[in-house]
Computed example of a mutant assay.
Amino acid sequence: MKLGAFVAKSTIRLIITYVVVIALYFIVVRVLPTLILGPEADPLLISLKRSAEDPRFSNWVEEIKKMYGYDKSLFSQFLIYMKNAMIFDFGSSLYSQRLVVEEIAQRLPYTLSLYTGATILPIVIGYYLGIVSAKHRGGKLDSTLVQLGIVSYIIPSWLVLLLLYYFFAYLPKRLWDYYIFPLPVRAPQVTVFDLEALKYLLWYISPMLIAAIVAWTGSWIYFIRQLVVSELAQDYVTTALAKGLSQSDTLKKHVIPNTRPPLIMRLAYTLPGIFGGALIFEIVGNWPGIAYQAYNAVLSWDFPVMMAFFTISTFLLIVSLLIAEIVIAVVDPRIRLR
């Protein structure tokens, strides 16, 4: 199959997947509660009733009802929902009365400034340590790295973060009146561009970055090691070594290229998580990111914010998977035949 036909086929398949997933979200959140418990159990209706209790928002609530087609059938509401989801028109938050897009734009710099590094650093470190572990498989270094990887995978990131705050923020302040890391009290202004603000930002997010590296690198070490070790057991590696090719050249020219497809696919599932962030980090670290906003939206049944978070997350994942499939098809043309 030619690359253009493969890309077209993958694009159509993933677009269909995206539409189905978005539709299922409406069914699960809006339709099922209504069918099981009755119309009064509709989460959107419950949220609107809460807002309507405040006389200041009575006219605004009526506008929201019209926007979501509440005076129409459930199927008509579904069509309105699908149209809004396709064009990323999420309306206003039911509680802040601000446009959802504006709220996300306000919190997005916080999410990106933290989770870009917290996601990419464990991948890079785990990649190289995984290859080192595989090169020394069966030895002490391999055993040490594998054990460290397992421990890293088991330890929760929030526990690491709490320990960092206790031993490097609370105790130094209590004993010596000095902070090694700051306590999570005042989040930095990430949109202020000056040297002092940058220094405070890096100081503030350092415990969270360290916790992410400690807790998330292990899974990547083990994953990369297993990929490389499984390839090293293949006949082509034995043949290459028998022909006099060194182990380093065999890894570089033959083994590493063959590990790219599964690695690219895992990256495709991991990188969109930068948008969603990690809720427990934002709660413990008092970080005003998108994950904490989504959490509050779920607690308060703020349907527009919930819809925006789910729709954008799904869209980013679909785009990431499409890019991954195209890259894999380029680096390994055999994929197009499947």
Rank of each mutant, 00 (worst) to 15 (best):
F78N: 06
N258M: 01
T191C: 03
V305N: 00
I290D: 09
H254F: 11
H254Y: 13
L3D: 12
I131Q: 07
Y153S: 15
K135M: 14
A5P: 01
I27D: 12
A240S: 15
G139Q: 05
L35P: 05
L227M: 12
Y81G: 07
W203K: 00
R336N: 07
F281D: 11
A294W: 00
I150K: 00
T116H: 09
I87H: 03
P272I: 08
F78G: 10
R50F: 06
A297T: 11
L337D: 15
V151T: 15
E103A: 03
M86P: 00
D194V: 09
R50H: 04
D54Y: 05
E282R: 01
R186F: 09
Q247S: 10
T217W: 02
N258Y: 05
Q293F: 15
P184H: 06
L94C: 06
P262T: 12
D249R: 15
T217L: 08
I213K: 04
Y110Q: 00
L14Y: 12
I120K: 10
G139S: 13
V151D: 10
W220V: 12
P156K: 14
L159T: 07
F309G: 02
F57K: 12
N59C: 00
S320K: 06
R260P: 03
V284H: 04
L321E: 06
T314I: 09
L24H: 02
R334G: 12
E325Y: 13
Q97P: 03
S96C: 03
K252F: 07
K253H: 09
S206G: 04
M1V: 15
L45F: 09
I64K: 11
L202C: 05
F193Y: 15
E62Y: 04
G38T: 08
M67N: 14
G130I: 09
I150P: 03
K135W: 11
Y95A: 00
L317E: 01
F315A: 11
F223C: 08
R56T: 14
F223V: 08
A278C: 01
A324F: 10
P304W: 15
V319G: 02
L232C: 14
L232I: 14
Y179H: 09
K72W: 05
L24D: 05
S313H: 05
L241M: 15
V319M: 06
G244F: 04
D302T: 07
A41R: 06
A308Q: 13
P304F: 10
L141P: 01
V228P: 10
I123H: 02
Y115Q: 01
L322H: 03
T311Q: 02
T34L: 00
Y269T: 07
I221V: 13
P109C: 04
I104L: 15
G4H: 04
L145C: 04
Y179W: 14
L175Y: 12
D54A: 02
P172F: 09
M265R: 05
V330F: 14
V185H: 00
I180N: 13
L263A: 07
T34R: 07
Q189K: 15
A8M: 03
T311E: 03
A212L: 05
H136Y: 10
L232D: 11
L24S: 08
K199H: 03
I46D: 00
R174F: 15
R13T: 01
E103D: 05
K199W: 09
L171W: 11
L114A: 01
P172C: 15
I123Y: 05
G69D: 02
L121W: 08
V61Q: 13
F309H: 09
